[in-house]
Design a protein around this nucleic acid. Structure first.
Lengths: 108, 108
DNA sequence: ACCTCATATGAACACTTGTTCATATAAATA
DNA sequence: TATTTATATGAACAAGTGTTCATATGAGGT
């Protein structure tokens, strides 16, 4: 801790394995596409079905569906059925914090 | 705020422009490569010159130098000269917080 | 001033990624 | 059960990315 140049820690950052660091990179890779970022951001306010998301972003249903699959596989979104449509919502609010930190870095 | 599904905010997440969201994606894109993540992580402990980083990661000097250029252009690392070598250090400790949040998400 | 050597750069390559278009799938409702 | 329709999927393509190899650059030390 004493030789830690960047100050206090919440989770200790020493001794993180290369595998964990690779997983970390994979997580950030999901946030590295603006379509996915816009999808996530739009889900902060309301849960939505696929077509609503597509309409909100002004993109094709297929493109959105492909991206939703990636978000699903990473357990970042959850789904539930409502009649004929499938409604997407964020899996947890961890992403919110990560986005906040990122935005703070950008707008400084 | 009342209709915010994910709870309290530090920085308000409503009304973020598409341009800001694109910038956010670009920031995460930098963290989406495991080499860059490993470089950043190794700089948490000590500042290092290019060859030291390459040796630490077991990679070629050229590969590291290419990645350091990306980190430099994003103002994530700073350089100073020490004799013949150029020493890299993190520009600020914002990255540390972002990494922590990411690691917490992974290890939960 | 001239080497030396650490770092930076450019071209080439294989690999990955996001979108579109066309179509398959499957649950709902008549 | 048949039909409808929202969503998912696969192939194809263009664009982007990270590494290697070879070489340029330029500041340091003599």
């Amino acid at each position: 801790m004493a030789d830690n140049k960047v100050g206090k820690t919440v989770k200790e950052m020493d001794y993180v394995s290369d595998e964990e660091l690779a997983d970390l990179a994979d997580l950030f890779k999901i946030f590295s596409d603006s379509t996915r970022v816009r999808i996530i951001h739009s889900l902060f306010k309301n849960e939505m079905n696929v077509q609503e998301i597509a309409d909100t972003l002004g993109m094709q249903q297929s493109a959105i569906s492909h991206q939703l699959r990636i978000l699903r596989q990473s357990n970042l979104v959850k789904t539930k059925r409502n009649g004929k449509t499938i409604i997407y919502k964020l899996a947890d609010d961890h992403v919110y914090t990560i986005f906040e930190q990122g935005l703070e870095h950008i707008t400084e």
